[in-house]
Structure formats: C-alpha cells, structure tokens
C-alpha cells in the first residue's frame, strides 16, 4: 500500500524563549542531571480547552520521573506530547519547545516513526496485539527492520522478554496468543514490546491501574531495573507508587506544573500549598 503518514507534520509554533528557571510559576528545579528530553513552555489545546499551560520539564537518563496530580490535570497529555501521540487526536494543538537529545521533536523534518522508536510508550490498559507472544514482541523490530535474520530477531525477542521479566513464564508458549496472558503478564509483554526497539525513553501512562497489587509490585520492580538503561516518565494515580519507583516527582494541577523536585522532598516537605494538600490526601 502506498499509504504512508510518515511525513504528516502538524503545524507547530516553536517558542524562542529558552528559560533556565522554572516554568510558569513552577516551584522547584525542573532540570535533570543528564537530560534526554527537555520541554520548555509546552501548551496544549484540545479545541477550546487549554489542557497544559506553560509547562517546562526535563527527563533525564537513568532516572524515573513520576507525574502525579488529580484526574484531568494534564499528566497524560504531557507525556503524549513527548512521542507526538497527540498527533492522532484531531482537535489537539501543541506548542512549545520539545527536544530529544537536542533535536526538535516537533521540527518539520522530524520523522515521527524514528521518534516513536526512540520514545516508547506503555499504556494504561494492557493492549497486546491479537497475535502470538513472539509476534507481539517482534512487531516493532520487524517494522523498523532491526533484525537482519531470523536468529537476530529471536535474540531481540528473547532479550526483551528477559529484560521485562517475562521470559521464564512464557518461554514454552511463545506461539500462544498474547491476549491469553494474565493482566500483569500482558502489561509486561507490552513493556517487552516497547523495549524491543531499544528506545532511549519509556513513557508509562498509569501502567498499573488495571492490575492487582501483586502484578503491580512485579511491574514496579521492573521499572526500577529498567532505570539502568532508560529514561522513564511514569504517570500514576498512586502516590505510594510514585514514592516507591521514582527519583523525581512532578505535581500537575489543572494544566499547570505546580511543583517538581526530588521525590522524597515532594512527599515530605512540599514547597507549594497545592502539592501539600494533594500528597497529604486533603483533596484529589
């Protein structure tokens, strides 16, 4: 099929202001030690709704940044900007300066396909394809032509499953459909699928909200291990989870990034009233 959308770029107005301090009134330090993704002055509109307002944030190598905040505060919208998944939403309009290792994510010549290969994503509900476990993991490498031979493909698939902590459970049934696994296994399959294309960054949109506590604990351990190789941003509704897995935490409120800081500080000594109210459970 000659149909191809690799070059469909949405008009983007990059801002020139490169702030060095916080975003629009953000408390705390938005910078990462070794930034992979830098975002400055991000604004997102869905139709008439202003979903994200002047948000600036870095995501760094070998760290987990958790994004917390009440529903509808723009956390998911923010991470969907980072791999341009908002492109698929008709009414979404994204402005701001987004950089992946210095490259403009929204530049006209940015290849969305390559971008998404470098910035992987794990969704809220496990969404394995209705294919075999093997084919689920091999999907990304196949489209990007990462494997030259069947043996290389096998290696990638086994390695990804191993790193996602799933190999031991499924190695005897790689031909069975991925949809037949349990919820937690499905989510780990989706993580294996995401790391099979060797991304630099993994975005996770409430990856445990559909899972039971045991499966959640498995995934959290996994996230901690993955930190060694990848930069990870995780959206979560569970403050305990944010405290357990992340090094830095960002608190969003009604489209504003209210506060960013080391996780420990956010939960023990927040610098903003709204953050304090939220983490102490007074609302949200």
């Amino acid at each position: 099929m000659p149909l191809d959308d690799r070059s469909t770029d949405r008009p983007v107005i990059p801002t020139t202001s490169q702030r060095t301090g916080g975003g629009s009134g953000t408390v705390g330090d938005i910078h990462a030690r070794e930034p992979v993704i830098t975002v400055r002055d991000c604004n997102v509109h869905y139709g008439d709704t202003h979903a994200l307002k002047q948000v600036s944030l870095d995501i760094g190598r070998n760290e987990v940044v958790s994004l917390i905040g009440p529903s509808g505060c723009g956390k998911s919208t923010f991470i969907r900007c980072l791999n341009r998944m908002n492109d698929t939403i008709e009414s979404a309009r994204v402005t701001g300066d987004f950089r992946l290792d210095g490259q403009d994510i929204y530049a006209k010549d940015m290849d969305v396909v390559l971008l998404r290969a470098r910035v992987g994503m794990v969704f809220q509900k496990p969404n394995p394809f209705p294919k075999s476990i093997f084919e689920n993991v091999a999907y990304g490498p196949r489209i990007h032509g990462l494997a030259g031979s069947r043996r290389q493909l096998d290696d990638i698939v086994y390695e990804s499953l191993e790193r996602a902590g799933l190999l031991a459970e499924v190695k005897d049934r790689l031909d069975e459909p991925g949809t037949g696994l349990s919820g937690g296994q499905q989510q780990r399959l989706c993580i294996a699928r995401a790391i099979a294309v060797s991304p630099d960054v993994i975005l996770m949109d409430e990856p445990c909200s559909a899972l039971d506590p045991i499966a959640t604990a498995r995934i959290e351990d996994l996230i901690d291990e993955l930190r060694e190789k990848y930069a990870i941003a995780i959206v979560t509704h569970s403050m305990q989870q944010a405290a357990r897995v992340s090094q830095r935490t960002a608190y969003f409120h009604l489209g504003n990034l209210v506060e960013v800081g080391p996780t420990e500080k956010i939960f023990t000594n927040p610098g903003h009233k709204l953050t304090e109210d939220y983490v102490t459970g007074r609302f949200g």
């Binding site: 099929m1 994503m121 209705p130």
Partner: peptide, 25 residues
C-alpha cells in the same frame, strides 16, 4: 483504539498499523 495506539507508539505508520494490526484483528 488501544491496539492502534500501541502500534503507532512503536513507530508504525497508519498503513502498517492497518495492515498488521487492525485488519488481522
């Protein structure tokens, strides 16, 4: 839609997503 999102997020194009994920499903 989650299947399409999953495929697109892996860097598949719309035509690849249609051919390899949507139509088989």
């Amino acid at each position: 839609q989650s299947l399409r999102d999953g495929s697109l997020a892996l860097g598949a194009t719309t035509s690849e997503t249609t051919r390899r994920v949507v139509i088989p499903a």
